[in-house]
Design a protein around this nucleic acid. Structure first.
Lengths: 210, 210
DNA sequence: GCCTTACGTGTTGCATCTATGATGGATACA
DNA sequence: TGTATCCATCATAGATGCAACACGTAAGGC
């Protein structure tokens, strides 16, 4: 219980949105959440402000906070933005070669372990971090932050995809280890190309699951 | 005085940062700002949270809020992100042709008027809106929001450039009216190319002014 | 003389209280 | 019966008070 009350409220609402307890379109009130978390309304307010900025809530003055129902347009926007950032980052990340490969290796291992033990949530978390590190390697804090928030929203958009099939996990695992291989081999063009393909696949998966 | 207390606090701090009253590295406290604006600490807190998200403040628990001193790396990151978004938007905006041109025309007129009357702040505001509308025309809310916050941070980064020389205003005015012309003429490639050049110039200007 | 510790000051974190605005339903009127 | 209006209810916006925490400073022990 070391986190602040505001953090706890934030986590509570975020998780509730992500796992569907607070469905899209639902109207929350500060008091409700405050009671649920066991804090006063002040920290809840702060949490809701943060979540609004991240695009998960929309606050209506004197009315309440609506859990943003994901529209098709919004889903497209997230995918498009993600593609833009990731495509931009790939060439720059590629030039860091083996150094980046060393950094990514642990997450690849995690993915393998989680794949073996069937822990899907852990798998996709490692997957997400893997990609985040690639983007971060491009060295632009602003775009890295944006990318992180995009990935979080994507979870919220398509929790269906979260239920990765075994097959899909294997494909992802294979793609990722190939990415690391190409970094080590200094094959920058190959890295970029594979990134594009991986992205396109993610887009197709998300689209088809909607 | 129709705005909320939180909005007033927000505007106060933001403007103070932009015009240099609160210099980079300065440590603000909630109480200070509350007194200055004439509201209690609650809305000031909210304002500071927003400004932290926008990257203008950094909050240190129990210590205060530091006005983020702009590092060279940060300035580069902003420019790079802006370039990425604007280059991405240009082709899509171009395809909207005359319709977009009609939308942009008023801002071009504003720029001309402000140029004539020497109202520099108004000029760069119209300039900013002009570009924002182009990005918005690409139809991605997430990237549009990002772009807006980038432009705001850019002001903060290079207020020197804000002091546009007459000459520079003329160049900008010329560029912008050419952009509108090409939209009307349906010259998509020309629009994109000019956008790139305009961007590169903005980058050079900013770099040289640091 | 130096290091440790205790304390004073200042700031945030959070709870609580009041005021105000929004909303939906009941009621009165046409 | 339909519509406009009034009011009870509820949610937020903001103010205020208190407690906890960080940090600088000064005093005391070694």
């Amino acid at each position: 219980m070391s986190a602040t009350a505001a953090d706890r409220a934030y986590d509570h609402v975020k998780h509730a949105i992500l796992d569907g307890s607070y469905a899209g379109g639902a109207l929350l009130t500060e008091g409700e959440v405050a009671d649920a978390v066991g804090v006063s309304r002040t920290p809840v307010r702060e949490a809701m402000l943060r979540l609004q900025v991240e695009g998960m809530l929309r606050l209506y003055p004197k009315k309440g906070a609506m859990v943003v129902p994901v529209t098709a347009a919004e889903a497209e926007a997230v995918l498009e933005a993600r593609t833009l950032v990731e495509s931009w980052a790939a060439p720059q990340a590629a030039s860091r070669g083996a150094q980046l490969a060393d950094e990514l290796e642990p997450y690849l291992t995690q993915m393998r372990d989680h794949r073996a033990s069937g822990y899907v949530t852990g798998f996709s978390e490692a997957d997400r971090t893997f990609h985040e590190r690639i983007v971060a390697a491009a060295g632009n804090d602003i775009l890295t932050r944006l990318y992180r928030s995009l990935r979080e929203r994507q979870i919220c958009i398509s929790e269906a995809v979260m239920r990765l099939s075994e097959e899909r996990m294997d494909i992802a695992l294979d793609d990722h280890s190939q990415l690391v291989d190409r970094l080590r081999a200094g094959d920058e063009a190959g890295f970029v190309e594979l990134t594009e393909r991986h992205l396109q696949q993610a887009i197709d998966n998300t689209r088809s699951s909607r």
